[in-house]
Structures are given as structure tokens and as C-alpha cells.
Amino acid sequence: MNRRKLRDFLGTKLMLVVTVAVSLLFFSIFFLLLFKSLLIFEQHSLTEILFSSSWNPGFNQFGLYPIIVGTILVTGIALIIAVPISILSAVYIAEYAPKKVRKVIRPFIDVLAGVPSVVYGLCALLFLVPFVKDVVAPWFGIETTGYCILTASITLAIMVFPIIISLCVESFHAIPLSLREASLSVGATKWETVKKVIFRASAPSVISAVFLGFGRAFGETIAVNMVVGGITRTPSTLFSPGQTLASLIVSAYSDMMSSPLYESALMMVALILFIVVLLFNIFGIFVLRRANKRWNV
């Protein structure tokens, strides 16, 4: 009996320790990154870092403006492409598709979610880069290498499809059938029901899906790094090469050990990335939880 009690006691305490350690993980990440980026803040003001457009670590210039613009452009355009396509696909899967089609498409979406990002990057390299260079850009009369903001955006859009789609499908499924019946039985068409009832009832979940998709796109590193061009200049058109925060870390890591200030600058980039994604995720998860409570899921 005593051995049993001892084992229970130790086992339970071990579980507690592990739980606390993991819960503290994001605090440790935050403080470590913050501590590491203090050096750069000592020498450069935050406004200088955020709004100066010269990124030139060799000459002690750490203006992040072009990279921030690049990140916002790449992520923003990715979402502009991905959100309508994903929501319409989710409506189709949840409301219109016959059961047989649905049964085939759902695993398809799961598979798409499981494709490693480096494979997305490779495919973008093989297909999208020449496609943008030889087909899309000439339409607009612009010359480009294909390694540009637009290519990175399309790649990211495809990567966030499965995230937004599966969250939206789930939230549409959580809406009681009777609510659809209520709308249909006054003579609304299916689309009217979707537009006026389903969208309204699931708005919080759809918004949080978009936020989580944003978090994914904002932090995506490898695939973007492979196709965005990697030039730290403020992009003038969507066909210009650019750079994003996450991708910069990969591009620069090999020479970042050259100076402590450079290292600190990159840690600050990681910190910004961390904080932005954190905020968006907190908001997304928060809204999603409130939404789920509404239908007692």
C-alpha cells in the first residue's frame, strides 16, 4: 500500500512539473528573445528600427522598414487570395457537396495540410516562379525574375487554404440543423440561408480561422525564403523581390555570428515575429472559444 501511495505521489508530482515547465515555455521564449534584443535597442531607437529603410548590417544600419512592408504585403495578399477561396470552398463542402464528394474532399484537405512547407516552396520554385515570370507579369507589361512578392503570396495562400477551410467547415457543422430548417422553412433558398444565417451564426469562428491563417502565413519561413527574392529593399510593385521577417532570419543566420549587434538585430526580428503571431493567435483562439460556447460544442 505504501509503495502504491509513493508511486502515486511521485507520478502525480512529475506530471505537475512537466505541465508547469511546458506552460512556462512561451514565457521563456519571450524573455530570452527580449533579453537578446536589448543590445540593439541600446544603440538604435525603436522608431529608427521600424521606420528607417536602410538594412545594412555591415554598416551598422538596421532599418526594418522594407522588410516590414514586404511581410505585410506578402501576408496581406496571401490572405486576400486565400480567404474568399477558402470560405467558398468550406461552404461548398459543408452545405452543398453530396456526401460522396464530401467524403473524398475532406481527406484531400487533410493531406494538403500535411504537405511540408519546404515541398510547397519547391513546387513554387518549379512552377510558380516561371509562371509569374513568363505568363502573369507580361500581362501587366512588367519584367520580373519571378522571385517576387506575388509568387510568395500565392504560395502562402495555398498553404493556408487547408487551415481556413477545415476550421470553417467545422464551425459550419457545429450550427444546428434546425437553424437551417428555420430559415429554409420560410422559403429562403440555400444560398440565402448561408448568407444571412450560417455566416452570421459562424462569424466569430470564421474570423478566428482567418486570424489563425494569418498567424501561419506571417510566420512561414522556408517556403517564402525560397521564392520571395530575398532583397531588403522596399518593393515597388508586386513583381519586385522583397524580404519577410521570418525569411530574413534564415537568409542571415550564417553570418549573424559576425557581430553581436547583428545577432541582436535578428533576435529582435524573431521577437517581433513572435509577438505579432502571439497576439493574432491569442485573439483567434479567444474568439473561437467564445464561438464554440455559443453552440455548446
Binding site: 512561451f26 521564449i29 530570452l32 528573445l33 489563425l212 510566420g219 521570418a246 524573431a270 493567435n281
Partner: peptide, 19 residues
């Protein structure tokens, strides 16, 4: 906190372990 950790970009974990 686990849900939030799930959403953190993998590059951050890389940088953290690198440090």
C-alpha cells in the same frame, strides 16, 4: 497556452534552441 504554442512559427523554436 498549448494552443498558442501550436501556432508559434517553427523558426521561433529553431531560434530559441539555437540561442
Amino acid at each position: 497556452s498549448l494552443d498558442i504554442l501550436w501556432g508559434i512559427p517553427s523558426i521561433i523554436y529553431g531560434v530559441f534552441c539555437f540561442l
